[in-house]
Design a protein around this nucleic acid. Structure first.
Lengths: 229, 229
DNA sequence: ACCTGAACACCGTTCAAGT
DNA sequence: ACCTGAACACCGTTCAAGT
């Protein structure tokens, strides 16, 4: 009943930390495909210890990646606190791309089915909230067309990121051009054709994900053997 | 020295055909993750027969998918032959999305590392050529801003497709909105901020792919045991 | 309580034995 | 020449045996 994660024994806590560090480094450099064996080895523990601390490899990935997403959220809040919402919105868009260029793990985990995991989805939603707020202010200032939602913008940026992932060796200019096109699309013009359909909200994303990934996510991330001590 | 693929024995040819049919159906419905065992079973042959006709599972995927890309190319040429290049360009963009919604295999194969395979890259490049031509005419007609290239457009559409892949349960409106934003970005305005950097060309994509996937593609797709009879 | 590494299940792929 | 399915290699995961 108490949600507090039970205190781990000192050596266990240290192993857990080492595993996260090893995984963070390996994932950032070589992507999420590195095997559990190598991670355990780099952390100086046995395979089994990895699975004692994390119920699956995916759980370890999630633990590593959520941390990086939170860094992005913090940066978003900083921009939100600034006094130029229009510039802040565009900066947030630009930085989303940069951030992923330096970390293959973040790159890969923001794609594919990873979003089915509740932890990632929550971090994702939180990021979306910040984006929505900063967007609303930019729209109020007339810097962004009024019929786009935060989800529209996030999806557009996500598209650019995905393209970067597809063509990893592409000259960096091209990603920038893609973002410039996104910004051109967001800029209001007198002759804008209004977008059709309802503006998507965060809930649409959640529903979309939940509908397709029944409960696989829950299964893989259920607590490891945290029996009472 | 003769590039003609040697004539297969009648039963072998039939098995090959059955394998492609089985794989096409299974891949379209359930994606590229279906196992070789199931494909062989559905085709009514042993596992080994699959690998006699295709050097790897990937080779089978490529054979299936290239066929679908060629269908898109044919459609592009039809639009190119039409008399309204501006409408044709936008139609090509719209249809790219629709086409992938009905075929998970096409969906998945146009993403990720699949483009490293020469066969897919070539089909891809051919598609790009058609897009480039139709785009040039639309630009000459003043319907699309003049500083975007065919690759810019293709990448933008690819981004939308990727987002669809990430959120498979998303209401279809949203994909349409994304495309509307792409089209808004392509529409010329007096106050357009010129895109920075050089317009990317098809070669940039090829270089990008080749640089990152050394020769893995060649290895997996080398001819199966086609010794002289 | 926790750690370890041998053992297991599940893929794609190979190959010796058949026709 | 071609087919077959048992066997192999390579992952993630489990668990009996240790401390």
């Amino acid at each position: 009943m108490d949600d507090q994660p039970r205190r781990l024994r000192a050596d266990a806590e240290r192993n857990r930390q080492r595993l996260i560090e090893a995984a963070t480094d390996l994932f950032r450099e070589r992507g999420l495909e590195v095997g559990v064996g190598e991670i355990a080895e780099r952390a100086g523990v046995g395979r089994g210890t990895l699975f004692r601390n994390f119920p699956s490899k995916d759980a370890l990935v999630v633990a590593v990646v959520v941390e990086r997403i939170r860094e992005s959220i913090a940066r978003g809040r900083a921009l939100l606190a600034g006094d130029d919402p229009a510039a802040g919105a565009f900066a947030l868009i630009d930085e989303a791309l940069e951030r992923q260029e330096g970390d293959r793990a973040l790159f890969e985990a923001l794609a594919g089915d990873w979003i089915a995991y509740p932890e990632i989805r929550e971090a994702h939603d939180e990021m979306l909230g910040v984006l929505g707020e900063i967007l609303a202010r930019a729209q109020a200032a007339g810097a962004i067309r009024s019929d786009v939602s935060g989800v529209d913008v996030m999806l557009a940026v996500k598209g650019v990121c995905e393209v970067q992932r597809l063509f990893p060796g592409l000259p960096p200019d091209i990603g920038r051009r893609q973002l410039e096109l996104v910004k051109a699309a967001l800029t209001p013009h007198a002759d804008d054709v209004p977008l059709t359909g309802a503006a998507p909200c965060a809930q649409d994303l959640d529903c979309a994900v939940a509908a397709r990934h029944p409960e696989a996510a829950e299964r893989a991330l259920g607590d490891p053997e945290r029996v009472a001590g």
